[in-house]
Structures are given as structure tokens and as C-alpha cells.
Write a protein that binds this DNA or RNA. Structure first.
Length: 659
RNA sequence: GCCGGAUUAGCACAGAGGUAGUGCAUUCGAUUCGUAAUCGAAAGGUCGUGGGUUCGAAUCCCACAUCCGGCUCCA
């Protein structure tokens, strides 16, 4: 618990009284002076000229402790207690409902219930109303400690009273630690197993909202019963709660599925099947610009391009092991003249065939084979999500064949490439280093070398990362980069994986300087991930305000009336000659209408031409941010060309959210 | 795949058992405009698909498809 200290203290107590406390008094000391009745409320005290909120939770040791409301833990405690309040309300309204678990999430809480039916939106309203009643009743929260010798009796009690989930949770706790001390939190006649801490009274929970109900498997296992989960959130103030709900609404406006429709980027027709993307001209243009950029980078970084077939005899995937381990995610076989063919779900087997097309010397290594490749995966229907999770995907895939000695440099190269790419697009990634799992193959030497190489590469680039202990593939360790969508969901993007397994399976070899045959290591890597998901992420990241180098239409020239048409055509020609994507909007519509249309389409520059501009050889430049200025035609060209060349990030994206 | 919700014109939506509606977009006409929607008219729909109940179904029931939110999955 965070405790603040102060030098001199003149206290103004929440009840209005004044109090002097000696210098050096801490917030904890102050709290000790606050009566228990005041602890029922979130109280504010003046501490050395600074107002802090004191929040008194009931902790794991059964005592009151101090948390300031600024402390991230305080919000967690409030939300955890809100979850209890919700469960309390649910069990009052729906007596058959059994509680299971109810944790805190990144920005709220949920509770899973076992009930005869799912809860409806109307149920949520009733539950919320009941929660308000319980909050107003200001029920005291207390903590019961069950010593180890009494836990078996408690378990039996749960079973007798029709609380099988509580009994199961207890059984698991005891299995892990037979001497564990169990705690139960009570409020009124309601209680649940919980380690706490919690707020001391339900009256502290005032600003909350139930968001939605959803199904969730007991213990997260799809073989188990499906429970009903209710999500909610809670804050200390109504303003914070409202701000959160507004943020959710704003985030929905950036949804790539919505923007993809509005900006005519892509479509997924129902008749052609789910998860299969049709890129419309504007979306295809953006994608092709990114592909062009990527190809030029790949050349600079020593990759060789290859092409491999989309459909091959499934023998290839028997050898690679995909049919054994990955078949449920592959489209079914097609019978062609008595042989089974498959759509490829990955490129590594194909690239292995290219490696095998001739014998290799150690002098050929590292060999970096690259392909912007379509693959097809039979993703389960409930998992599809716009461009972010699809069945036909385009990977910016490459496989690097190298020696164990070359591995560190190759990995460093990949990490640098990924870092450069995320920087250019202005994205932020969360990085995970996944280490050796329990069920793993391969030598310790390989695992140590590869894991160290991955770690060193990250550290040398100064990249913060989390370790996903045991999260590696069975064949090798990896680095995963995750991006966030508009509402904070994590999506896997770039990845670097070390793999000695496929070279083994395909019997890939090279002749070493010692004259002996050796086995290369394969590095799988993707810089953007897939084009589909990457587009989804940047659409949401920019909120549709693409940087100039990516904007499908970079500028639109708008004559105020017909008399200015000729000048406008000349301007359009000049800008196009400079390589800019410019449109002329001389439709018979009002100026306001055409400006609005360009704004809605998020065109970066609107170039308005009236009598003045024609006379002076200028353009009235309006940016999508609303900024206006008058510049000569040449200045406009120079500025836009420079903005394209520097791949400047859009200012509008941030401002869009505010609009 | 599982739980729940949704599906009405190109898009956004109204319509809760009795002749299918609104706004925007589209087309036509008028208007020629100085920085986020000029006015008028026309055209546009097997109400996701299939079955059922009913004298009668967009509306009620069943199945399927697709989408949305979760869960699971994403070697």
C-alpha cells in the first residue's frame, strides 16, 4: 500500500473539524486518527497543502490499511468490491444462481455465474438497480479467516449447501497447499471466498455500470460447462465513469470495420464466405504502398524473393508435421486425380522445398528467403474479426537458414527491422520473449543459444519486454510483438521464431568448412505480421487519418465556381506530375458540401481555388485538421512531396479522437 | 466450435399480426456558391435464407447463414 509522507501538516478533516499533527506524520498516521465511521466514506484530508483522498480497504490480514485514490491498487480494490456487490445483487434477484469467480480486469471487473439461463440486458438493469440499493444500505464488509484445520469442514459445508464451485476452488487451493489459510468476505448475509482486500462498506461503491453479459467456460476450458459472465466497471467519481464510457464510444468510431466501409477500403461479401477479404481500390492502394516499401527494405536487408504455390499435395504437410499438429486449422483436402491437395496454411514447408532444390555450402548462409504470401487457415467461425482475424491472410513471411553461430546476428537483424517498421508507422508494441516449454524438443545448447540471442537482440535495441516463461513453441523460443486495437485488445503482429525442427523434418543440410554435412537452423519471421491484421491496426491507430504517404487521395482541388476550372485542371496536372495523388472536385455542389465530403473522407489537403487564387497563382490550403493558409502552387507541391518522402505521421489522428 | 444479441434500400436507422417508411448516397432539374450538408423531383426493397403458425407474417415459432460482444482457439 502506498503511503505518503509529509513535512508539516495542517489537517482539515472530512467532517469539517480541524486537527494539527506533528511534522513527519504519514498518511497512515492520519488515517489512524480518522474515526471508523468516517472510513465508511472515501475521505479527503489536507496533507501539507495537498489534498489526498484516503481510501480504507479491508486487507488480507483483516485490518484496515490506507490507499490513496491515486494508487492504481485503489481502483482495483474498488472494482473487486464492485464485483462482490454485483454477485450479491444477482443472488438476491436470482436465488438459483451460483457464484464461481469474479476478478478485476484492466478496466473493470466481471463475475461468472452458473444459472439456468443467460442474463439479458433487462436483467442487467435490474441487477444494477439492486446494486444501488445494496450500496445505499451501506452494508459493513467483514473478513472471516478459516484456519487450515477447519478448511475440510468448510469444504463439506459448501458441498452440502449447494456451492459446488466454492468447494472445488477450496479443493484446488488445498491441493496446492494443504496448510493454506482461507479467507471469506462477508457483507450482510452474502459471502464469497476471496483473498481481498475489500472496501469496508458497500456504501463506498457508488459509480459503477454493468456493461454486458457473455458466455464463458468454467475454468476457461471448453469441455466444461458454460457459465454466464457479467462485465462491469466502477470508478471513484461519476466524471471518471462517464469519461470511460465516452472513451468506449469514441473507440467504436475508429473501428476498422466501420472505417473500412466508410472510406471504401475493403469488403467481405456474405456470398463469398466469411474471413475472405476483397480489397477495394483505396484499401488496395494503401496496402500496395506498404508492400512496395517493404519490398525495398527487404532488398536492402539481403532477402531474396521467392514464390510458392497456394495449393500443393498434402504430402508436404505430412513431412512438415502440420497435418499431425495443425490439421484442424487447415481447409479440408481436395481430391485431384486421386491425390489429396491442400491450401497452404504456412510458407515454411514451401520455403524448405526451395532450400532443398540444390545442395548448400556454409558459404551460402545465411540464406534469407522472403515471400509476401497468401495462406489459408480454417479459423473457427466464432473467432473471425474484420481484417484482424481472417481465413485468407497475407503474411510478410521470410525464413532465414543459418548456422547456430550466425543466429544472434540474424535475430538482431530481424528485431531491428521490426523496430524500424513500427517506428515508421508510429505503432507501439508490447514485446514478449517466450522461453522453453515443458514439452520441448532440441538440445539444451540450441535452447540456450537461441534464447540468449533473442534476449540480447532486444536488450541491445533497448526494447522493454516481458518474459513468457515456458511460452515458446515446442521446437524453439520466440519473440512476439503485440499491438493494440482501438478498444485495447491485443493482437499478435511481428514475430521472430527459432526452429531447428523443420530443417530436421525436411532433412535440410549444408556442407561445412570441415567437409561434413550440418543442419541449418531456420528462423521464421514476420515484420508486419499479416497485411490484413496490420491494416486493421493502422486504420484504428490513425482513426482513418492516414499519413500523407499512405493516404489514397492526398489532396482534392476544389474550385469555388466553374470559372476557376481551367486553373484547377492545370494545378491538378502539376501536382500529379510531382507524383501526388490528387482529385478534382468540380461537382455542382456547394463549397461547404465538397469541403465536408473531403473532411469525412479524411483527405489530408483541400486546395480551394477562387478568383483571388487564380489571379495570384496560389492555392487556399485547408488541412483536415482545419488549419488554413494561402501558398503558391510550387510551395504546396514542395511541402506535400516532402511530407510524403519523410513519411510524416499524421497530426490528425490524435485530433480526430477529440472531435 | 460454445453462450447471448442482431439481420428492413448502397449506408445509417424507424416500423411489435392488416397495402414497406425516414435521412444520406444515386439519377434528373434548378442553383454558381470563399472553407463541415442549397432546394425540388424521381428511382431504389422476395424485410438474410428456408420451413411452420395464421384468413393474413418484416412482426410469432423452428432450422440454417452472416455479423456483433464475450469464451475457447491462434503448434
Amino acid at each position: 500500500m502506498a503511503v505518503e509522507s509529509a513535512a508539516t501538516i495542517a489537517l482539515e478533516m472530512p467532517d469539517g473539524s480541524k486537527r494539527e499533527v506533528p511534522s513527519g506524520t504519514t498518511a497512515a498516521d492520519v488515517a489512524a486518527q480518522i474515526s471508523r465511521s468516517l472510513a465508511k466514506k472515501a475521505v479527503a484530508a489536507r496533507l501539507d497543502g495537498k489534498t489526498i483522498d484516503l481510501f480504507r480497504p479491508l486487507t488480507a490480514d483483516g485490518k484496515f490499511a490506507i490507499v490513496t485514490q491515486d494508487d492504481p491498487e485503489a481502483l482495483e480494490i474498488l472494482r473487486h468490491s464492485s464485483a462482490h456487490l454485483m454477485a450479491n445483487a444477482v443472488q438476491r434477484l436470482y436465488p438459483g444462481a451460483k457464484v464461481t469467480i469474479g476478478p478485476v480486469t484492466a478496466d473493470g471487473f466481471f463475475y461468472d455465474f452458473d444459472y439456468e439461463r443467460a442474463f439479458t440486458p433487462e436483467d442487467l438493469e435490474k441487477i444494477e438497480a439492486e446494486m444501488r440499493k445494496l450500496s445505499q444500505a451501506d452494508i459493513k464488509v467483514s473478513r472471516e479467516v478459516v484456519p487450515p484445520d477447519q478448511t475440510p469442514a468448510k469444504m463439506a459445508e459448501f458441498e452440502q449447501h449447494g456451492e459446488p464451485y466454492k468447494a472445488e476452488i477450496l479443493r484446488d487451493i488445498l491441493a496446492a497447499d494443504p496448510q493454506a489459510t482461507i479467507s471469506i468476505y462477508h457483507q450482510g448475509d452474502w459471502s464469497d471466498l476471496c483473498v481481498g482486500p475489500h472496501v469496508p462498506t458497500t456504501g463506498l461503491i457508488k459509480h459503477f455500470k454493468l456493461l454486458n453479459a457473455a458466455g464463458a467456460y468454467w475454468r476457461g476450458n471448453e469441455k466444461n460447462k458454460m457459465l454466464t459472465r457479467i462485465y462491469g466497471t466502477a470508478y471513484f467519481t461519476e466524471a471518471d465513469l462517464k469519461a470511460h464510457l465516452t472513451r468506449l464510444e469514441e473507440a467504436a468510431k475508429r473501428d476498422h470495420r466501420k472505417l473500412g466501409k466508410e472510406l471504401e477500403l475493403f469488403t467481405i461479401p456474405e456470398v463469398t464466405g466469411p474471413g475472405l477479404i476483397f480489397w477495394l481500390p483505396k484499401g488496395a492502394l494503401i496496402r500496395s504502398i506498404i508492400e512496395d516499401w517493404l519490398r525495398s527494405e527487404l532488398k536492402k536487408r539481403g532477402y531474396e524473393q521467392v514464390y510458392t504455390p497456394h495449393v500443393v499435395k498434402e504430402t508436404l504437410f505430412e513431412v512438415s508435421g502440420h497435418l499431425g499438429n495443425y490439421a484442424e486449422n487447415m481447409f479440408p483436402a481436395m481430391d485431384v486425380e486421386g491425390a489429396n491437395y491442400r491450401l497452404k496454411p504456412m510458407n515454411c514447408p514451401g520455403h524448405s522445398m526451395i532450400y532443398k532444390s540444390k545442395p548448400h555450402s556454409y558459404r551460402d548462409l545465411p540464406l534469407r528467403l522472403q515471400e509476401i504470401a497468401n495462406v489459408y487457415r480454417y479459423e473457427r467461425s466464432g473467432t473471425l474479426h474484420g481484417l484482424a482475424r481472417v481465413r485468407g491472410l497475407t503474411m510478410d513471411d521470410a525464413h532465414i537458414f543459418c548456422t547456430l553461430e550466425q543466429l544472434p546476428d540474424e535475430i538482431a537483424g530481424c528485431v531491428e527491422f521490426i523496430q524500424d517498421a513500427t517506428k515508421i508507422f508510429g505503432l507501439e508494441a508490447k514485446v514478449y520473449l517466450s522461453t522453453k516449454p515443458e514439452k520441448a524438443i532440441g538440445s539444451d545448447e540450441f535452447w540456450d543459444t537461441a534464447t540468449n540471442a533473442l534476449r540480447t537482440a532486444l536488450e541491445r535495441k533497448g526494447m522493454a519486454y516481458d518474459i513468457d516463461e515456458g511460452g515458446g513453441a515446442f521446437y524453439g523460443p520466440k519473440i512476439d510483438f503485440k499491438f493494440y486495437d482501438a478498444i485495447g485488445r491485443e493482437w499478435q503482429g511481428p514475430t521472430v521464431q527459432c526452429d531447428p525442427n523443420l530443417p530436421e523434418r525436411f532433412d535440410l543440410t549444408y556442407r561445412g568448412s570441415d567437409g561434413q554435412e550440418h543442419r541449418p537452423i531456420m528462423v521464421h519471421r514476420a515484420i508486419l505480421g499479416t497485411f490484413e491484421r496490420f491494416m486493421a491496426l493502422i486504420i484504428e491507430h490513425y482513426a482513418g487519418h492516414f499519413p500523407l504517404w499512405l493516404a489514397p487521395v492526398q489532396a482534392v482541388v476544389i474550385p469555388i465556381n466553374e470559372e476557376n476550372d481551367a486553373y484547377c485542371r492545370e494545378v491538378v496536372e502539376r501536382l500529379r506530375s510531382a507524383g501526388l495523388r490528387v482529385e478534382l472536385d468540380n461537382r455542382n455542389e456547394s463549397l461547404n458540401y465538397r469541403i465536408r465530403e473531403a473532411q469525412v473522407q479524411k483527405v489530408p489537403y483541400m486546395l480551394v481555388v477562387g478568383k483571388k487564387e487564380v489571379e495570384q497563382g496560389t492555392l487556399a490550403v485547408r488541412q483536415r485538421t482545419g488549419r488554413q493558409e494561402v501558398l503558391s502552387v510550387q510551395d504546396v507541391i514542395d511541402r506535400l512531396v516532402q511530407e510524403v518522402e519523410t513519411k510524416a505521421l499524421p497530426q490528425a489522428a490524435a485530433e480526430a479522437v477529440a472531435q
